[in-house]
């Protein structure tokens, strides 16, 4: 079952007088349980494509359908609700809310969705345990290492049970050990919860774990390979 369908999508930016095609006629689809990476050199359009899939940006032409929603038909306010309901984001710089504890960060989106408190707390506990931070409920981001913060960010993204997780260079700021731990956790969640992960990355460690590697060059898909890393 396709979670994401991308049909002949273009994204053009007009920087001063130069027209930049960040995404240049991409057609792709992602199915439930994918553990896919989008790779490519800087400026190849990885992040732009991720932003388009996540409904953070709109394509210039083409169509993106996520969980049955044609994103181009959604109003800006509907797009915000769409993101909250269907997409989990993991950012390169963690982007946790510094004034909240790890548990509060994880529960944040659930509270926006008005989950009952007991249910929210149970899910938070379950996820912090899953990312190996069961003992850091009350730690503020400033009291956590980079790897731990990124694990909290993953837990936050997973909390409201989205359709898929978009992770933009999630290991870029992490040391090897933290990166491996994080990837272990994401692989485990992918396996156990059948959560779809779509990464953009330069990191060979991520590519090594992926079961699908999509290569972009100048905004075009130049290869889309499936591997059998899980096995």
């Amino acid at each position: 079952m396709n979670v994401v369908e991308i049909n002949d999508v273009y994204k053009t930016y007009h920087d001063t007088e130069v027209e930049v095609r960040a995404v240049n006629g991409v057609t792709l689809s992602f199915t439930k349980g994918d553990f896919a990476v989008i790779v490519g050199p800087s400026g190849s359009g990885k992040t732009t494509l991720l932003n388009l899939i996540g409904g953070l940006d709109q394509p210039t032409t083409g169509e993106i359908i996520v969980a049955g929603h044609r994103l181009s038909e959604l109003k800006p306010s509907e797009l915000i609700d769409f993101r909250m309901e269907h997409v989990g984001f993991v950012f390169q710089s963690y982007n946790l809310i510094p004034v909240l504890t790890a548990a509060e960060n994880v529960g944040f989106i659930m509270s926006l969705q008005k989950w009952p408190k007991e249910k929210r707390m149970a899910r938070t506990g379950e996820l912090l345990e899953a990312v190996g931070l069961a003992d850091r409920h009350n730690s503020r981001p400033s009291q956590l290492s980079g790897g731990q913060q990124q694990r909290v960010a993953v837990a936050r993204a997973l909390a409201p049970r989205p359709e898929f997780i978009l992770a933009d260079e999630p290991t870029a700021n992490l040391d090897s050990k933290s990166a491996e731990t994080l990837l272990d956790i994401m692989e485990k969640l992918n396996r156990e919860e059948e959560m779809t992960f779509i990464f953009s990355t330069h990191d060979a460690r991520v590519m090594k774990r992926a079961r699908r590697v999509i290569t972009l060059e100048d905004g075009k898909v130049v290869s889309d390979e499936r591997t059998n890393h899980r096995e």
């Binding site: 915000i80 309901e85 984001f89 969705q113 936050r156």
Partner: peptide
């Protein structure tokens, strides 16, 4: 700025 961008990205609407 970055934090507000993240809040908007994860679904915090304009009213909130």
């Amino acid at each position: 700025t970055r934090e507000l961008g993240m809040l908007s990205a994860v679904g915090m609407n304009r009213r909130r």
